[in-house]
């Protein structure tokens, strides 16, 4: 009996998993194709860019500056043991542009924006507003989903660019005022080994993370059902699944694409 019920559970969750994957693929395909086919709702796009890009700036900036600061402190602790203090500037700038900028900004935006997308679309679903859109001869994918995805793909790299600058600034502040570095030398060391590719690879990652955040948020919201409880569940799922997607994709992208 126990084995049977065990198999039952495993089978059911496997089916559930494949249904989810299939549904997500369909949703992705339809959303992406709607990003390229008119009509385009520019007003919606600008609203979303404002919300995702501009309003996320404080959170992302705060994360970046403290990360840069702590990074300088920690690497000083390590590197001073074998008198390699001159490498600190390089370590800070490379870690931030290649890794921490995109990942931390991605996770912060996933919490902030992914959740609100899921909640908003979820509420629109359960109050039949999405159905109402269709009856007004408007494709909800084009009006709701496409602007969010495009806005996230555009805004996340911009946010990460800001995060890079602010993070490096954080490292600079700590190094100069706390660790007693010379300002001119620190700046020179920062740019000495930095290549355009380091920044660009980070921005590419950011665009992909932005896509995942908007996709997961919209998908969970769009498919939510069952009233307020369903919307709550959709919100949680959106944040969890996009955070996991960011972490996994970050590894895959780094190991496959950018490991030069």
């Amino acid at each position: 009996m126990m084995i049977l019920s065990f198999l039952n559970t495993v089978g059911a969750s496997t089916i559930e998993f494949f249904r989810y994957v299939g549904d997500l693929s369909l949703f992705t395909f339809r959303s992406v194709s709607c990003c390229f086919r008119p009509p385009f709702y520019l007003r919606q796009l600008f609203v979303q860019m404002y919300r995702i890009g501009y309003l996320s700036l404080p959170v992302v900036g705060l994360t970046a500056i403290f990360t840069g600061m702590v990074l300088a402190l920690q690497s000083y602790t390590g590197f001073s043991r074998f008198s390699a203090e001159s490498a600190i500037a390089t370590v800070v700038v490379l870690s931030i542009t290649r890794e921490l900028g995109p990942v931390l900004a991605g996770l912060m935006v996933a919490g902030r924006v992914g959740a609100s997308m899921a909640a908003e679309l979820g509420t629109m679903r359960v109050t039949e507003q999405i159905d109402a859109l269709s009856t007004l001869a408007t494709d909800p994918y084009k009006y709701l989903v496409a602007p969010r995805i495009v806005a996230a793909v555009i805004c996340l790299p911009l946010l990460v660019l800001c995060a890079d600058a602010i993070g490096v600034l954080g490292g600079y502040i700590v190094s100069i005022h706390k660790l007693g570095f010379n300002s001119a030398i620190y700046i020179e060391q920062t740019f000495q080994y930095l290549e355009a590719d380091d920044v660009i690879s980070g921005l590419q990652k950011a665009a992909i993370f932005g896509f995942m955040i908007a996709l997961m948020g919209c998908h969970q919201g769009y498919r939510s059902r069952g009233g307020a409880q369903g919307v709550g569940r959709a919100t949680t799922n959106a944040v969890v699944s996009s955070s996991i997607a960011i972490l996994v994709l970050n590894y895959l992208l780094t190991s496959v694409l950018f490991s030069k």
Partner: peptide, 9 residues
């Protein structure tokens, strides 16, 4: 269509 719950945006 007028929806049961109005469904205004």
């Amino acid at each position: 269509m007028l929806f049961q719950g109005a469904a205004l945006f």
